[in-house]
Design a protein around this nucleic acid. Structure first.
Lengths: 261, 261
DNA sequence: ATAGATTTTGGAAGTATTTGCAAGATAAAT
DNA sequence: ATTTATCTTGCAAATACTTCCAAAATCTAT
């Protein structure tokens, strides 16, 4: 990789994730942190980004025109961790269905290297990859649901009904031992079609979703292969879920820092 | 392999991968790095690419109608005027198909007050209305074509084949008395489906498109109801088009009361 | 076709740039 | 205030670039 290409990759990566640590960038471009530091200095001088302690931040985030990526910095890091951990579950060259929803959005940010085929009905996710040409993104058609930037309606359901994918990465409003529920009735049909289309089902649910029930039941626990959550999820419920045969991955700082392939 | 052929292969390869190291290029064209270096110097002098430390990069991935660039101020005011004039042709509550392309994008910006039903395969247009809830936007499904932010492929064609709309607002690469042409073969099928789906066909073409011919023919003049252009369009061609029964709207500052951009 | 001239090619030597590491300095965290 | 993490600076090794030269290929004229 040339120095120039490396700088561009740093820029592109930051364009997607908005902020990244030195370590993260270093791994992403496969160069030492020293080199990344120097690159960042150059890019900062060019006005492309702004260096911060421990990393860098893009100066003009282009993905930010959505009510969607609202600044809840509180749970942001938890969703980040969940996103990273979930992305680690995905193998290379798999086809992945991505649900709409903020948590899944964070998964998408870490998926560039892994999955060349992504199917989604989320406009923010689509925008994320709109300029990345390593990933093939299929966007399901449908009517845009304004606030969320999600495509909904019969067109969307039909699109997913005709598809097959290796994995589906899903959001939901709540999970109990009785199953998974969601509040957006508009999305239920679409999510059901997603579940049918995928071989493996992963739900990304931060701790606040545990023990909660939304209005519309989505599916039972038997459909769920894996749940990725953060370390504030109630241990009893996690244990109970595991007893029911659901794999539960708890994302933590330690885990995400560890092994590389 | 001749020297000339080698240079062309280098160029074509860079067109595909954007960056390449010396070593990579050397292997690809089966020549020594020294030779590749010399070739790159020549090509750089010709403005085809830019050398970098360790390799080379294409200078620009071809500027065209569909390439969305954030800092594209080129002919901005003219496209703005065309956009406004074209939006004026649309009635309230009409269903409108919007093609991908920068000029049509500017039309979309002025369409919100009309509260139309919009169907498009353009990601930028979709983003424009993603948070506006006066407008119902239907996004056709398909594969995202990276650089352009357009949805393409059979899914997209099928989506438009099943639709009916009052108006289609279209882009194109060139127009002559022989008809309308476009350079992106990937889009031709989609555009044809759009034309079939709509009752009235409007083409938005700035003056640079007049008298130009791109590789792929799109449709004859008989299909075209209206063309919206700016006041630098060649008068003879405009007159000739009118004689053929095409309504030509020339956007000027007079018509659109001066707002800033 | 052949000998000589010209251009092109591949490589070598020397110079310049880049990279990764380490040590001291500075800023954040507890 | 102390500890930890991050940043800057300087340096040596690695890598890449330029210039030059000889061999190979191509062209030209007889």
């Amino acid at each position: 990789m040339t120095a120039d290409e490396r700088k561009h990759r740093i820029e592109a990566y930051l364009q997607r994730v908005e902020f990244a640590s030195l370590e993260e960038l270093s791994q992403h471009v496969e160069a030492s942190v020293s080199t990344v530091r120097r690159d960042l200095s150059v890019l900062e001088a060019a006005g492309e980004l702004r260096r911060t302690h421990g990393g860098a931040r893009i100066v003009t985030p282009k993905t930010d025109e959505f009510a969607f990526s609202a600044r809840d910095t509180h749970q942001l890091s938890e969703k980040e961790l969940i996103g990273k951990a979930c992305a680690n579950l995905i193998g290379s060259n798999q086809s992945v269905i991505l649900d709409a929803g903020t948590t899944v959005y964070h998964v998408a940010r870490h998926l560039e290297e892994k999955a060349p085929q992504i199917v989604t009905n989320s406009l923010p996710v689509a925008n994320l990859f709109a300029s990345a040409n390593k990933v093939e993104v299929i966007l399901a058609g449908g009517v845009i649901y304004p606030r969320l930037g999600v495509l909904v309606g019969p067109m969307t359901v039909e699109a997913f009904s005709k598809m097959r994918a290796d994995v589906a990465i899903m959001s939901a409003g709540g999970i109990t031992l009785e199953g998974v529920t969601n509040s957006h009735t508009l999305l239920i049909d679409i999510q059901r079609a997603m579940l049918k289309a995928a071989q493996k089902i992963i739900f990304c649910l931060d701790h606040s979703k545990f023990g909660r029930q939304s209005v519309s039941p989505l599916c039972g626990l038997d459909m769920v292969d894996t749940i990725v959550t953060d370390n504030r999820a109630p241990h009893e419920l996690v244990a109970a879920l595991r007893e029911r045969g659901v794999e539960v991955v708890v994302a933590s700082h330690a885990h995400s820092n560890g092994e590389e392939i």
